[in-house]
Simulated scan of single mutants.
Amino acid sequence: MGNTYRIKDIAKMSGVSAGTVDRILHNRGKVSEEAYKKVNKVLKEIDYQPNLIARSLALKKSYRFIALIPLFAEGEYWAELCNGIDKARQELFSYNVEVERLYFDQYNQQSFDELIPILEQTDYQGVVIATSFYSSVMRLTQLLDQKKTPYVLIDAFIDKTNCIAYYGINSFDSGYIAGRLLYDQINKTDNIVIFRFTHKGDVQVTQEIKREEGFRNYLLEKDFGGNIYTVLLEANDPNKNTAILDNFFDKHKDINTGIIFNSKAHLVAQHFKQKLKQFFLIGYDVIKSNTIYLENGYISYLIAQRPEVQGFNCIRALFRHIILKEEVNRINYMPIDILIKENIKYYNNYI
């Protein structure tokens, strides 16, 4: 209905000039607060819906969003998230929206820091940030706040930022749930192990920290009396990892339960398969390599968070906020999905 109203119709209903209405609708030039209130009141009354495609093409205005994403190989978690970003980009093509990705090494905080000067010198209207490194993300968001550039967080929510939206699971709660899943499989005094992949500079990823906090919190509430060991592995050195794992289990033959708080569970499960070792392992993220080990029993549970949905919605949130001028929900928690080999084959149906 709103699209049948012309600018001169709205001007007449508002009691202002057509030029004033034009400036308000196209967000150009100054108008008085009184005129703005009059026009806005009429727009709400007639449920005015502008033709945004026509407007953006007529003004020849383009929008550039930048996504800071960890470098990935095909089939990994971040590849799934980027599939969602690409779907949103394709959907918004008619609105002159472009999305550029800047990559960093998720095991090297310096590689993230090196992107900040690039952003200082780059023209863009919105940013998506994977919040891997807390201190670096805080430094970047302060820069974006100064530039009044809207940004969306994914991976882990950081409450000391002015993000317009966050998409992802509640990291603490997902770890808490993982604690319950694991605790149900052990005796109160059994020993367990946390597998952790090391990062350059010995910096833990924000999301993994929060997941581990939730996990340990659950065990603490249950007065867990066993020991929690930590095994440090390297993402790109399988031979070294084999030696590390062999050495650990030679010393701790009683341990047959553990968890890893990221998508690398398949690298640990591969070791157990090679050694024909029975082990109860909880991991994160439904990627192909993890799914294989879930189906053959070397991963017991996967906790999933729908990365493609996250990627799609983070770009849509910037679009709605910047172009449609709509209010978006700030906290958008994904479902915390628990997958086992009996239900994994149905997981992506109807999504």
Rank of each mutant, 00 (worst) to 15 (best):
L102R: 05
Y229D: 12
H271G: 01
Y36F: 11
K222A: 12
I116V: 05
T230Y: 11
V193D: 07
N241P: 05
V128H: 01
C82G: 00
L294M: 08
L324N: 04
I299K: 14
E208Y: 14
C82K: 10
D145G: 02
E114F: 06
I340L: 13
V309R: 14
F104S: 02
P150C: 12
H26Y: 07
L219F: 15
I24C: 08
T242N: 09
R180Y: 14
I186V: 15
G214R: 10
F195I: 04
L25T: 03
L220E: 15
S111N: 05
L140K: 00
E114N: 07
I169M: 07
S62Y: 03
A156H: 01
H199G: 09
I7N: 08
I177D: 11
L144H: 02
F72A: 06
E212H: 11
I259M: 07
L140E: 00
E80K: 10
D190Q: 09
I255F: 13
K273I: 04
D190G: 13
N329Y: 07
Q125P: 01
Y124W: 02
Y36V: 08
D22A: 04
E76W: 05
A130E: 03
Y167M: 00
K251N: 14
Y293W: 12
V203W: 06
L181Y: 12
V328L: 04
L153T: 00
I209S: 11
N187W: 11
L153M: 09
I66C: 06
N313M: 10
F157H: 15
I228N: 14
K273P: 00
F112L: 00
I303N: 05
Y124I: 01
G84L: 08
N262M: 08
I116F: 02
I260A: 06
P117L: 00
Q146S: 11
N162H: 13
G283E: 05
R139V: 02
I244D: 03
P117I: 00
L25S: 07
N349V: 08
I340R: 14
V268I: 15
Q49K: 10
E34K: 15
V309Q: 14
N191T: 05
N236A: 10
V328P: 02
A11C: 10
G175S: 11
Q305Y: 03
V205Y: 10
I24K: 12
R64W: 00
I351V: 12
Y134D: 05
I7Y: 09
Q207L: 13
I299R: 13
T257E: 09
E342R: 11
G175C: 12
I338A: 13
